[in-house]
Design a binder for these strands. Structure first.
Lengths: 98, 98
DNA sequence: TGAATATATGAGCAAATGTTCATATAAGGA
DNA sequence: TCCTTATATGAACATTTGCTCATATATTCA
């Protein structure tokens, strides 16, 4: 147990980033490969603007990293830590929600 | 990667439950011991009503279990799975946010 | 340089969320 | 039974959130 209000607040903000369908779909789409914004839009079937707004949040909380290549920006999951949390979640859903 | 929209939606709802300071504080308070509602209120410093509303959500998504003892209702973390997710999160914050 | 393509972002708006307030329900003790 | 204590819940309201629309920025190519 943590007795630091600031840590709890930070952690809740961190979990909150995973708690939106669009953002989670983007993360899911990036699990296989890095992808540019256009491809992400197609895969999650959302507008370029909506995706870009959510990518901003994913960047802000360091869930993704990105790299500009020509006109495109390629996004990727930030690290194995994030992948681990996603895998843990997927396993949980498989097991408990089914 | 999961290609099932319903699973992604379920999972995002699951993460969302962790993504609120009050609910996360409640979970944190329960990590040591089971506690009744009154004690939870004191520990998280929120009104009885606010806590009770959030406990309802924690129950709904099976993050806590509870048991009535006389007039009191004692709440506890549902299982080690939930504890694991919390521990993982705390470690992440320790490591990345500091 | 001007047009096309790719991405980012601000403003506005509607929906979702969390709190308070009032009240309901339930159990224990006098 | 009546009062007190413990918990739950509905309604109202303010805040937050995520989308759309319009537009800005940046890069490539003709």
């Amino acid at each position: 147990m943590v007795n630091n209000k600031a840590v709890i607040t930070k952690l809740s903000e961190f979990y909150k980033v995973f708690g939106d369908v669009t953002r989670l779909s983007i993360l899911n789409a990036l699990l296989d490969n890095e992808k540019n914004v256009g491809d992400i839009c197609k895969e999650v079937n959302m507008s370029q603007s909506a995706v870009s707004h959510q990518l901003k949040i994913l960047r802000l909380y360091n869930l993704v990293k990105y790299e500009k290549k020509g006109q495109s920006v390629f996004y990727n999951i930030a690290d194995n830590h994030i992948k681990g949390i996603l895998k843990y979640g997927f396993d949980h859903i498989d097991e408990f929600i089914k």
